[in-house]
């Protein structure tokens, strides 16, 4: 395009904020949902009927389902977008987490991992799943309604959600940064689930 003096600031917004937080500005602030908040109610559409239905233990044969229809009391929900570089980089960690959850005698029947593509179209989700050989279920949040209800989190963000007997979806844990150690995350999930399962 002919511009001669093009520079890149590789530290990015977060780098700048850590150096000079006074030299930033914002247009608006939306409350991001966190620990103790209720995960938004949503209906997701099955893209891989049989495998997803079996993994999530969904009894209903309808094409769409609500999180409360899932037959497991805990969900690890990843919010991502296939065009986000950090989300693509983090796929390997989520695959390792999925594997560890399935191999855990205690957690495999309690916690299921699924991912929701914020602003992703169904065909985009299918292509992303195929390209990255993702074994866990992926769903599309085409109009970003779930994403907005969560308070526009930085992608990828993941939530450990407890589906309570009355159907309320309580957030137990939020993971926003890069997962440095999957084993430590599994331990965290294990201790949170164990605490919730203690008789009150």
């Amino acid at each position: 395009m002919g511009y001669q003096n093009v520079l890149r600031f590789p530290d990015g917004f977060f780098g700048w904020k850590s150096f000079f937080s006074d030299n930033t500005q914002s247009v608006d602030t939306i409350k991001k949902l966190g620990i103790g908040d209720v995960f938004p109610s949503c209906r997701l559409v099955m893209l891989y009927d049989e495998t997803d239905r079996a993994y999530l233990k969904i009894q209903s044969l309808q094409k769409s389902f609500a999180l409360e229809d899932i037959g497991n009391p805990y969900l690890y929900i990843v919010i991502y977008n296939e065009k986000c570089l950090a989300c693509v980089d983090e796929v390997q960690s989520f695959k390792a987490l999925y594997k560890s959850l399935n191999e855990s005698l205690y957690l495999s029947d309690k916690v299921k991992l699924l991912a929701i593509g914020a602003g992703s179209k169904k065909r985009g989700v299918i292509a992303f799943k195929k390209e990255n050989a993702i074994p866990y279920p992926l769903f599309a949040d085409e109009n970003r309604s779930i994403f907005y209800c969560l308070g526009n989190p930085v992608l990828p963000t993941s939530y450990l959600v407890h589906i309570q007997p009355d159907g309320r979806r309580q957030i137990l844990f939020v993971q926003q940064d890069h997962i440095n150690n999957v084993e430590m995350l599994i331990q965290k999930i294990y201790s949170l689930v164990k605490d919730m399962e203690l008789p009150k």
């Binding site: 511009y3 093009v6 520079l7 890149r8 530290d11 990015g12 917004f13 977060f14």
Partner: peptide
């Protein structure tokens, strides 16, 4: 950017880290 090809332009994202 406009038509000034000699101006300084800086791009940034979240961070490359």
């Amino acid at each position: 950017l406009g038509s000034d090809k000699k101006q300084t332009i800086i791009f940034y994202c979240r961070s490359v880290a």
